[in-house]
């Protein structure tokens, strides 16, 4: 169980996130939706302790999450990544093994095998020696997905994984999300659009600085809720 209680974040005096609380049972695929600037990225960053929180508790399996970071995998938004960085596909996925391997040691044979399996699973093993800057948007996203898989985490967090990806990548990501859920992993996914892609989630969180609604698609995507999150215009289009 992932428990979030009263999570609040201030940034330079402005409230970005206010008293967000929710529960996610293990083995669920959860979508986080909301307008631009609603604090979706801040929410996952606060869960992972990447931004200072003003108050709140984050527990995973009954323990503070920040003490079990080896159990979590995080895929940042693609705009946060420097795609000109001089690094190959293989070495990006190897990064998943950095903390487990420990200081002053080289990667083990097992770590290499994990990397290989993860790259094969997203159909990127053949491109393992390519610099990441020479890949398409979809291929880049699959490399980060492979890095998350290679970590064998229990809680996986994705920030807008479907931005700028091709159809093949979208299918691969969908399939892998289903497989991970079947393995009992918990997934939090920030989803940018409100279309049919929402059908894959077990539950949705609708956010705009505070939690507006939580539940299945039918309960969350209502004209009332959307109006509260997005304002009147958009709500009419999607409801």
């Amino acid at each position: 169980m992932l428990e979030i209680q009263n999570l609040s974040v201030d940034y330079k005096g402005n409230c970005v996130l206010s008293n967000v609380s929710f529960l996610v049972p293990m083995g669920q695929l959860v979508g986080i939706i909301g307008p631009n600037g609603a604090g979706k990225s801040t929410l996952v960053e606060a869960i992972l302790n990447l931004v200072p929180v003003t108050q709140g508790v984050v527990r995973f399996k009954g323990m503070p999450l920040k003490r079990q970071l080896l159990q979590t995998a995080y895929v940042p938004q693609r705009s946060r990544v420097d795609w000109d960085y001089p690094v190959t596909v293989w070495n990006v996925v190897m990064m998943a093994q950095t903390v487990q391997t420990g200081l002053f040691k080289g990667f083990s044979q097992w770590a290499r095998q994990q990397t290989r399996t993860a790259l094969e699973r997203v159909d990127m093993y053949d491109l393992r020696d390519r610099p990441i800057g020479e890949l398409s948007g979809g291929q880049q996203q699959r490399v980060f997905l492979a890095r998350a898989l290679a970590k064998e985490a229990e809680l996986l967090i994705f920030d807008e994984p479907f931005t700028a990806v091709d159809r093949k990548t979208e299918d691969i990501i969908f399939d892998i999300f289903q497989e991970l859920r079947a393995e009992g992993k918990t997934l939090l996914v920030i989803n940018h659009d409100l279309g049919d892609s929402l059908a894959i989630y077990d539950q949705l969180l609708l956010l705009n600085k505070h939690l507006i609604a939580q539940g299945n698609r039918r309960e969350v995507v209502t004209s009332d809720n959307l109006e509260r999150a997005y304002g009147r215009g958009l709500a009419r289009v999607f409801a």
Binding site: L69, L70, Y74, D82, V87, N91, V92, M94, T98, T101
Partner: peptide
């Protein structure tokens, strides 16, 4: 040489490195 893999991870993806507990 000693910290190469940690520095590679940190300089490429600081948030990812922090999320891994580095």
């Amino acid at each position: 040489r000693l910290f190469f893999k940690e520095l590679l991870f940190y300089t490429f993806d600081p948030k990812g490195a922090q999320a891994s507990g580095m």
